[in-house]
């Protein structure tokens, strides 16, 4: 194994690890599953790394491999079915100033997002990461128009989940 390659990869991933954590946050519901998916994404990133040419940003490249692993390659999906575990592992976000209603609303939103299917989650994830529709369409392999249409449907679906 090429030590220099290994070193550069681990350093880059250490720096950008939040991207992987965020994918895991959306696609898993407990700490074990989170760690499991994190590891699988790391392995897939490492396997693909020799082909990474640096013509795209490392972080952009990570979004693609990370999402592909979560929605296509990852096998242990059974652990992700239960949603009730989610709240107990929600990441503590320091909301300042503390607003109870807002906090409550956010909790419900995160819960609603977890009820979406894999593809819808991918769209929401890229949207939350402030990716434009061009990037979303390229990551998922659909046209930009369809990405917009789908995103509107996801918004409607979230609304229905929140206000049944």
């Amino acid at each position: 194994m090429d030590k220099a390659l290994e070193h550069s990869f681990v350093e880059l991933l250490e720096k950008h690890q939040n991207i992987v954590h965020k994918v895991c946050r959306l696609y898993t519901n407990n700490q074990d599953a989170h760690n499991d998916l994190f590891q699988e994404i790391t392995i897939q990133l490492w396997k693909a790394y020799p082909k990474f040419r640096g013509d795209s940003k490392f972080s952009t490249w990570m979004y693609r491999v990370g999402l592909n692993t979560a929605i296509t390659l990852y096998r242990k999906s059974k652990r992700n079915i239960q949603t009730q575990e989610f709240e107990s592992v929600q990441f503590k976000i320091k909301a300042e100033p503390y607003d109870d209603t807002e906090e409550q609303q956010l909790k419900l939103m995160y819960k609603a997002v977890h009820q979406l299917n894999d593809i819808e989650k991918a769209l929401v994830f890229l949207y939350l990461e402030d990716k434009n529709y061009n990037e979303i369409s390229e990551t998922l392999g659909i046209t930009e128009v369809n990405a917009r249409v789908k995103m509107n449907r996801v918004k409607k679906k979230l609304k229905t989940i929140l206000n049944p």
Partner: peptide, 10 residues
Amino acid sequence: NTTDNAKTLM
């Protein structure tokens, strides 16, 4: 190839 877009990979 995991670096393809999701649809192509699938």
